[in-house]
Amino acid sequence: MVEYINGKKIDENKPITIREVSEAAQVSMATVSRVINGNPNVKPATRKKVLKVIEELDYRPNAVARGLASKKTTTVGVIIPDITNVYFSSLALGIDDIATMYKYNIILANSESDEQKEIQVLNTLLAKQVDGIIFMGNTITEEMRRQIKRAKIPFVIAGSVDSLEEIESVHIDYVAASEEAVRDLVNHGNERIAFVSGSLTEPINGEYRLQGYKNVLAENNIEFDPELVFETGYNYHSGEIMWPALSAMGVTAVYAGDDELAAGILNSAQDAGIKVPEDFEIVTSNNSKLTKIVRPKMSSITEPLYDIGAVAMRYLTKMMNKEEVETENKTIILPYGYIKRSTTK
């Protein structure tokens, strides 16, 4: 560590500034800035000298300070409701890879699916001068919508929906996907098909997936029974404790809105001596690695989780750079598939 710069002692308790780097390298602060930002308009010898000083002083550029000058911090905030859920972690991987490609840094904030904490982490990210935000929450509350409008920075929803279509989003056609899953169960002779998801106040469940479920029942002259619609948590335990209620309703098949939830139902049914798929069938929604870990392997909608995250991040970069984005109603719809495995006949 260099202890003096032009006769002035360095205070080791304070971070090195760009001014101290310029003084030590005997170049202007503008030249140091150009070196840091990879600007080619710097002589090789000068670049080498500046980089040597940066290493000796252990200088770390302050992204926020740079952002105040350039009005860009090249930092993006990502709000994730449950960092342990493989659905969201798969989305986050796609986001991170594209962020790295376009030289953006990611600040990941876990909201724990708590509406108040979502607002808190949003304001924390805004205080860090992020250039844009990707939101992976299940619901855009009125307060969140108000804060987004107030912030006036690019904002994209990944893997969920804005039913008002006011906010840019990337997802699949959840109605059509739900229809395909439930139609397969009906074609196998099931009429007592349960719809199991997170809260129906979340548009992805109450407005899209549930509509697809109802559409297929109607087209097959099966009366919709609201008692076969179950709201619960997005986790394994919630599915595990649900089997007694499903069994009591005479359910022979389930369409589940989450893979962890589906795995809990599947294991609990088998623990009760139920044969899958002979006596009970189940289709899940996200095709995460859990669908292949459990036995039997679960049939699933193949939602392109990584791609949704990647496209959402690319969408955000275009917005941040004011590039033209061709979308309908601010929404990018990606293709989905359906893979039959051993939990369906």
Rank of each mutant, 00 (worst) to 15 (best):
K43M: 09
V121C: 08
P296K: 06
T75F: 06
S22V: 07
N41K: 15
R150E: 14
L200I: 08
E328W: 09
G337V: 07
R66N: 15
N39I: 07
S268M: 04
Q129A: 11
R314G: 12
S247Y: 15
K117L: 13
N6E: 14
L125F: 04
I83N: 07
K128L: 11
T139H: 09
A256T: 02
V27M: 14
F195E: 01
D162A: 08
Y102I: 03
D162L: 08
I119F: 07
A245D: 12
M136L: 15
I36D: 11
L57W: 12
I293S: 09
E166W: 09
S70Y: 14
V42W: 13
I301P: 00
D131G: 03
I333F: 06
F230E: 01
T331S: 07
I16S: 02
I204Q: 01
N235V: 05
K345L: 13
L91K: 02
Y234V: 00
V196W: 00
Y236H: 09
I204D: 00
N123R: 15
M144R: 08
G38P: 15
V130R: 00
I172A: 07
N267Q: 10
L246F: 09
T327A: 07
P15S: 05
I18Q: 09
D259S: 06
K345C: 04
R19C: 06
G212W: 01
G273I: 05
N62A: 07
V311H: 03
K275M: 13
L125A: 02
D82L: 05
E260G: 00
N321W: 08
I332T: 07
V229K: 09
S33F: 10
I222K: 06
T75Q: 11
I10S: 04
E323Q: 11
E55G: 04
D11M: 07
S22G: 11
W243R: 00
Q147R: 15
V311C: 10
D114A: 11
E180R: 11
L108I: 10
L122S: 02
Y87I: 11
A194E: 03
E142I: 02
S22R: 12
S90F: 13
A218N: 15
P154C: 12
